[in-house]
């Protein structure tokens, strides 16, 4: 009898730790992105902003990928998501990034890329969608996808010109690191709200000058590299 009771207790306490508590179940959780130019909300197609180099400018297009999200806890454990998000700044639905199966917990930092990790950055590496097809980086230039298309017009003393900041190729990933206290519970949790400051692409640590660094980054690895380094702090 004693043996049978001991076996029961052993079995009970062996199984107990394996039972997840309700509030530990994976949950849907969201990251929202908005846009500013320094302290002003971004309005597309409005020549009303000034970059660090001193030019008035407007944004006509901002399409990009974010991927390889890693959420870290104080104890060193991490939740890594393999989700890839296509974002069009002009399309609100694409600016809400939904993680369907997010493990609840208290997180202290998030890391991700603006762009695609090398496993996805190959021709047909993403699902065939209209957006992904439009972001294609032709095989004739190495294949894969554009990481970002930031386009618009700017003015200097002599006139108005176009600019197109296109990033691509594995070496031009933009790593983002944000220290942020995040509590995600099994119930309703506040989303993580991120704001991209467009002007941060053009300053800090280096001023990016359309006239001297290039108003087009295509075929210009030096320009792309400078933008990648500046891009590390575009989100807050």
């Amino acid at each position: 009898m004693v043996i049978r009771f001991s076996f029961f207790l052993f079995t009970f306490f062996s199984i107990l730790p394996g039972c997840k508590k309700t509030d530990e179940k994976e949950t849907a959780w969201q990251v929202n992105i908005s846009y500013q130019v320094d302290s002003s909300p971004l309005q597309m197609n409005r020549m009303m902003y000034m970059c660090e180099a001193g030019y008035d400018y407007e944004v006509t297009k901002l399409n990009y990928y974010v991927s390889h999200f890693v959420f870290s806890k104080n104890d060193g454990s991490q939740y890594e998501s393999d989700k890839v998000f296509y974002v069009n700044a002009a399309n609100p639905t694409t600016n809400s990034l939904l993680f369907e199966n997010f493990p609840p917990g208290d997180y202290t930092a998030v890391d991700f890329y603006v762009g695609l990790d090398s496993s996805h950055n190959v021709t047909d590496g993403l699902a065939a969608t209209l957006d992904n097809i439009n972001m294609g980086w032709p095989d004739e230039m190495g294949g894969g996808y554009h990481f970002m298309k930031l386009e618009g017009h700017y003015k200097d003393a002599n006139g108005t010109y176009g600019f197109a900041i296109h990033l691509g190729k594995n070496k031009h990933l933009v790593p983002i690191h944000l220290s942020r206290a995040l509590t995600v519970s099994g119930g309703h949790s506040s989303p993580l709200n991120l704001t991209m400051n467009i002007n941060e692409w053009f300053k800090n640590p280096a001023v990016y000058d359309f006239n001297t660094d290039g108003n087009y980054s295509m075929n210009n690895d030096t320009a792309m590299q400078k933008l990648c380094i500046n891009g590390a702090d575009i989100f807050n």
Binding site: L130, I133, G136, M141
Partner: peptide, 16 residues
Amino acid sequence: FFTEKGDCFHCHNEIF
């Protein structure tokens, strides 16, 4: 067509 030389591909992607 598919490089910056002609730069057709930005508006005419290779599928559609």
